[in-house]
């Protein structure tokens, strides 16, 4: 397949544009390979040559990350919305609660915090890019940006407004900074007018950004 064949689609991490056999292909987007793409190939081949990691392990890890998408986080939120006992279990022990929905969150500890009328939570990683990857996948570019990391902790309302989010004055905004060992997960406020919706319909209202806390859940 030529690089041209890959130009369209794959806006979602779970779409496998490249077949598994092609995950190690020397396919370069946007022109000839740059120094970093070449360094990636060199380090990878040396790791394979030395038996530190195997091609099969690397392919499996890429596929594993492709499968960790915000849809997992959305399922967890929707279930917490409809089942208050589950929501409490999620706050008490995220790993076990996620396992109830067959979602594996092995790795850094995840901590659920709930947004309400009184308090809105939003998380960040001021130092780099720690993120609840197990349930949201690889973080978006803006989350890792200097602008987001520096501004969110001092002027969260202006950052939220850039994301189109305006909260009432009486709502406290709490910004939480992730660490390498512990990452947050926001249970957004359940939107009004969603009483009759099924859990699947509710999950569609829960976006990646609403779990980070830069937006609220979508309105039905």
């Amino acid at each position: 397949m030529s690089p041209h064949d890959h130009e369209h689609g794959d806006d979602h991490g779970h779409d496998h544009v490249y077949g598994d056999d092609d995950l190690l292909a020397e396919v370069f987007e946007g022109g000839p390979p740059d120094d970093y793409e070449i360094l990636e190939i060199a380090l990878r081949e040396l790791l394979f040559d030395k038996g530190v990691i195997t091609p099969a392990e690397l392919r499996a890890k890429i596929v594993e990350w492709d499968g960790k998408t915000p849809e997992n986080g959305a399922r967890i939120v929707a279930h917490a919305w409809v089942d208050p006992a589950y929501k409490q279990r999620l706050k008490d022990d995220f790993y076990s609660a996620a396992a109830e929905l067959d979602i594996d969150t092995a790795g850094p500890q995840l901590v659920a915090v709930e947004s309400t009328d009184d308090v809105h939570h939003v998380f960040c990683c001021t130092l780099c890019s720690c993120y609840p990857r197990a349930v949201l996948g690889i973080p978006p570019e803006w989350y890792k940006s200097k602008e987001y990391r520096s501004r969110i902790v001092v002027d969260p309302r202006s950052v939220l407004s850039e994301f189109g989010t305006t909260l009432p004055d009486h709502t406290d905004v709490r910004v939480i900074d992730n660490t390498a060992e512990s990452r947050y997960f926001v249970i957004p406020k359940r939107p009004e007018g969603t009483e009759g919706l099924s859990e699947e319909e509710l999950a569609k209202l829960v976006t990646r950004d609403s779990i980070i806390g830069v937006t609220e859940a979508l309105k039905p």
Partner: peptide
């Protein structure tokens, strides 16, 4: 694809 490999490695 290269970035995904760096991430996975």
């Amino acid at each position: 694809l290269s970035e995904r490999r760096v991430d996975a490695m």
